[in-house]
């Protein structure tokens, strides 16, 4: 699993999931996450993000496909694969009647970490998540944001090489979100590969270097954050010309192609505007009759994903 960039932290091939209810939550999804990446799995409600996380953490049975975690095939080396992973689920799944400290020590134990070491780590991560004063209360008496932080601490006790976070900042206040972001950035800088799911482009933009956009169970975009932003912030227009053309006219500064003899497709970035394109076309004697926006699913999604601003806690 070595390549020019080092080892894949996660490699997913043709992963599909059909629930008993008949819902196809994932449709032959493939993507790789490089070691050291901060990877966003971005998508609207019901896109299949949690399902994907569930399968990677073996909480959900896949229908087909294969997954490797740091080179360990989950079908053949499940325990090794699991040992590399820490997960913060979307829904609270804490034992509400146990002491927070014990929850962490036990979780460490399940990963085979001796109790003495588990206690040290429990202390370390409870302090990191600003929950040390709460070590002797049970999870029931924590606020929602505290529960989430406790789940982050719990996910760290085995010092995972790959940390999966399913909407880690849903329902936490701005201050906590900042704290969490700083913490995750720091963790990633120190070498932990992180995958997080989110509805918000802004969150992905703030944290991640790679992004996959998932929609209705399919990956519709998977690239570096930079490239995806560039793509998202451009629009494609279709221009109907008066006369048929043999080839796409050369429009300075724009990407243009011929869709049909009387339809030119041009890509326009947000800063650019369309004025220059029209002048250029006029110069070359091409008369444009009408123009329409080529609606792509990506653009629609972009609107969805940027609509909910993070700041207003929607």
């Amino acid at each position: 699993m070595q390549n020019a960039f080092g080892m894949h932290a996660l490699s997913i091939k043709n992963l599909s999931k059909k629930y008993k209810s008949g819902v196809e939550a994932l449709k032959s999804v493939s993507f790789d996450v490089q070691q050291g990446d901060f990877f966003a799995l971005l998508g609207p409600n019901g896109a299949g993000k949690t399902t994907a996380i569930g399968i990677i953490t073996s909480l959900v049975n896949k229908s087909s496909g294969s997954i490797e975690v740091f080179g360990h095939d989950m079908d053949k080396e499940l325990a090794e694969a699991k040992s590399c992973i820490g997960v913060v689920p979307q829904e609270v799944n804490l034992n509400l009647f146990d002491f927070n400290f014990n929850i962490l020590v036990n979780q460490a134990g399940f990963y085979g970490i001796p109790r003495s070491e588990g206690k040290k780590r429990a202390e370390q991560y409870l302090k990191k998540m600003q929950l040390w004063e709460k070590r002797k209360t049970d999870a029931r008496s924590l606020s929602g944001g505290m529960k989430r932080r406790l789940m982050v601490a719990r996910a760290l006790v085995n010092r995972p090489k790959l940390l999966l976070l399913d909407e880690p900042t849903a329902g936490v206040d701005i201050e906590t979100r900042r704290m969490m972001w700083d913490f995750l950035r720091d963790l990633n800088n120190k070498g932990t590969t992180i995958i997080l799911t989110t509805h918000y482009l802004e969150e992905a933009e703030q944290l991640c270097n790679k992004v996959a956009i998932i929609d209705e169970g399919k990956i519709i975009e998977n690239d570096s954050m930079q490239n995806v932003l560039k793509k998202l912030k451009t629009e494609v227009f279709i221009l109907n010309t008066e006369k048929p053309l043999d080839e796409a006219p050369n429009i300075k500064g724009y990407l243009a192609s011929l869709r049909s003899p009387q339809e030119i497709e041009i890509t326009v970035s947000q800063e650019q505007g369309v004025n220059d394109a029209f002048s250029s076309l006029q110069e070359s004697g091409v008369k444009v009759l009408s123009m329409r926006n080529k609606n792509s699913r990506l653009e629609e999604l972009f609107l969805d994903l940027t609509k909910g601003q993070l700041g207003d806690d929607s």
Partner: peptide
């Protein structure tokens, strides 16, 4: 019901 069975299921404990 509370979901913390997942603590065991995600761990390598067989």
């Amino acid at each position: 019901i509370q979901g913390h069975i997942e603590e065991l299921l995600v761990s390598p404990l067989s």
